[in-house]
């Protein structure tokens, strides 16, 4: 009902090419392909196993107690006035409290260790410099800008295996959330703000990436492919994009930013240097705020300071 003609058209064409645009399948229970997702999944499994100590007794005891003390079973004791036991009370408050205390320590340390803003590989001398990628969430597509390579891609993210990747995210529409389940957990992208996410692919492969925050009728189509390739392939790919990619200037960007689902991924060999900064800054009217947003690109939790 609120579709514009272009939206409708874009959506239809995307449905037609949906398969071509989305060649990657997640196998159920596929293993993590990077250290961040691996650590997060490990934490999930650990906590789940720990919680089973509380949960399994309930699942076993509930039917057992109910059956054992069923009305017809006159052999069981019946104590209609029994309503308290100090020992049991200590147990039922104490055991969950101990479990939570243990988990709380894990939460405190792991939240820091797996903070999406925390640089991975930072301490390792051998590690290559992280690859910076600026991510812009649009309706209903993702734009990836490689500021140091001066190239950009739409709905494709090509990464070198084994090298830390530092994503800077913003949105030029509503709130979105970027998730690549096999590489790392998600982070929101919000207009006028920059959030960050570190990840690394440890094995070559193609992985699904997506937006998980509902943003309209094209939402389900807002997926992209992450190609993790080895370092040599990555440089060759960059060279190739530079050589024969399109130009991404302000006019081309305005076209991209319109609501719609793109028919196919795109590559740009030439990108305006401060495109990302301008996308963020346009939500801040005053010059002063614009300057502070630019300055915080490398360090700040801009969304907090905002």
């Amino acid at each position: 009902m609120q579709h514009t003609a272009t939206e409708g058209h874009a959506k239809r064409s995307a449905s037609r090419v949906g398969l071509a645009a989305m060649p990657v399948r997640a196998a159920i229970f596929a293993v993590a392909a990077g250290p961040v997702a691996a650590a997060e999944r490990q934490l999930l499994v650990q906590a789940a196993v720990l919680m089973l100590f509380v949960v399994v007794p309930v699942i076993v005891l509930t039917p057992w107690v109910a059956w054992r003390f069923r009305r017809r079973n006159r052999r069981s004791a019946y104590r209609p006035g029994w309503d308290f036991s100090r020992t049991l009370e200590v147990l039922i408050w104490g055991v969950p409290a101990l479990l939570v205390a243990f988990l709380a320590v894990r939460v405190w340390t792991q939240s820091r260790a797996l903070d999406p803003y925390r640089a991975i590989d930072a301490g390792q001398a051998s590690a290559a410099a992280p690859l910076d990628v600026q991510v812009v969430g649009l309706d209903w597509k993702w734009l990836f800008i490689y500021p140091d390579q001066h190239i950009a891609t739409l709905n494709t993210l090509v990464l070198p295996v084994g090298r830390a990747v530092h994503l800077h995210l913003t949105s030029d529409t509503v709130m979105e959330s970027l998730l690549v389940p096999r590489l790392a957990g998600q982070i929101y992208a919000m207009p006028g703000m920059i959030t960050q996410l570190w990840l690394r692919a440890d094995r070559p492969g193609d992985f699904v990436g997506e937006n998980t925050q509902y943003n309209g009728s094209g939402f389900a189509h807002q997926k992209f492919v992450v190609h993790a390739v080895d370092a040599g392939d990555f440089s060759r790919w960059v060279g190739k994009v530079r050589a024969d990619g399109d130009v991404l200037d302000a006019r081309r960007y305005r076209e991209l930013a319109r609501r719609g689902v793109p028919a196919a991924p795109e590559r740009f060999g030439q990108v305006d240097a401060d495109l990302f900064g301008r996308i963020v800054a346009k939500y801040h009217a005053s010059a002063q705020l614009r300057a502070s947003t630019m300055a915080s690109r490398a360090t700040g939790r801009t969304n907090d300071a905002h």
Binding site: L43, A47, L103, Q110, L114, P116, S177, L179, A184, T212
Partner: peptide
């Protein structure tokens, strides 16, 4: 409730 786990499965 564990933030790093939530990152993976939030909004799913």
């Amino acid at each position: 409730a564990i933030p790093p786990v939530d990152f993976l499965v939030h909004n799913t």
